[in-house]
C-alpha cells in the first residue's frame, strides 16, 4: 500500500522537476519547484521526518521560494530561450548522461543484491510519530547543540551580508545606456543646433 504511494509521489516530483527546466517562463519554473518541494515534504512525512517536512514547507517554500517569486516578478524577467548553439551543448549533455546514467543503473542493480540488505526496511512500518519527534529534538539539542548554534550563525551572517550588499547599491561608475532617461529627456536639456549662416546674417 505504502510503496505505490511513494512511487506515485516520486513520479510526480520528477515530473515537476522536468517542468522547472522545460517551462519557458521563470514564474512557472518557480511554481513547479514549489510543487516539487511539496512532494518531497510528503515523502518525508511518510518516512516519519515530520519536523523536517514542516521546516521544508515553512522555511523553504514559505520563505525562500516566495523570495524567488518576488524577485522574478519584480525583475520582470522575460521568457528564456534555449542556447543558440544547442547542438554542441546537447552533445556535452548526452556525454554526461551516458556516463552518469549507467553508473546509476549499475549502482541500483548492486543495491538489489540481497547480500547488501541488512535489516530490510523498517521503513514501511511507521513508528509512533510522537517518539520520532522527541528523539530528533533531543539529539538536536544534546549531541548537536553547538553545531546548531554555528549553523545558525552561518545562516545569520550571509543574510546580513546580503542585505548589506543590496543596500550598498550599484556601482555608479559603470557607463551604461539608460533608455528610460533617454526617453524622458526634455527639450531644454537637448543640444541645440544652430545654423551659423543664419546667425551671421542676423547679426549683420
Amino acid at each position: 500500500m505504502i510503496v505505490p504511494a511513494i512511487a506515485t509521489i516520486s513520479m510526480l516530483m520528477i515530473l515537476f522537476a522536468n517542468a522547472v527546466i522545460l517551462l519557458n517562463h521563470p514564474v512557472k519554473s518557480v511554481l513547479s519547484l514549489i510543487a516539487c518541494f511539496l512532494c518531497a515534504s510528503i515523502l518525508w512525512l511518510i518516512f516519519g521526518a515530520e519536523y523536517l517536512a514542516l521546516v521544508l514547507i515553512f522555511l523553504y517554500v514559505g520563505a525562500v521560494m516566495t523570495l524567488f517569486l518576488f524577485m522574478v516578478m519584480m525583475m520582470n524577467v522575460d521568457s528564456y530561450t534555449p542556447d543558440e548553439q544547442f547542438t554542441t551543448k546537447f552533445s556535452v549533455m548526452i556525454l554526461t548522461l551516458t556516463i552518469l546514467v549507467p553508473c546509476a543503473i549499475y549502482g541500483l542493480s548492486q543495491l538489489s543484491n540481497p547480500s547488501m540488505i541488512s535489516t530490510d526496511i523498517a521503513s514501511v512500518k511507521l513508528s509512533s510519530k510522537n517518539e520520532s519527534f522527541t528523539l530528533f529534538s533531543s539529539v538536536l539539542y544534546q549531541d548537536y547543540f553547538w553545531v546548531i548554534q554555528i549553523v545558525g550563525l552561518i545562516l545569520a551572517v550571509p543574510i546580513v551580508l546580503a542585505a548589506g550588499i543590496v543596500k550598498q547599491g550599484a556601482n555608479t561608475h559603470v557607463k551604461q545606456q539608460k533608455s528610460s532617461e533617454q526617453l524622458a529627456v526634455r527639450s531644454n536639456q537637448r543640444l541645440t543646433l544652430v545654423d551659423t549662416k543664419q546667425v551671421r546674417k542676423k547679426s549683420c
Partner: peptide, 8 residues
C-alpha cells in the same frame, strides 16, 4: 558542462 564531465 565541463564541471559535470569532470564529475562523471
Amino acid at each position: 558542462a565541463i564541471m559535470s564531465v569532470a564529475l562523471a
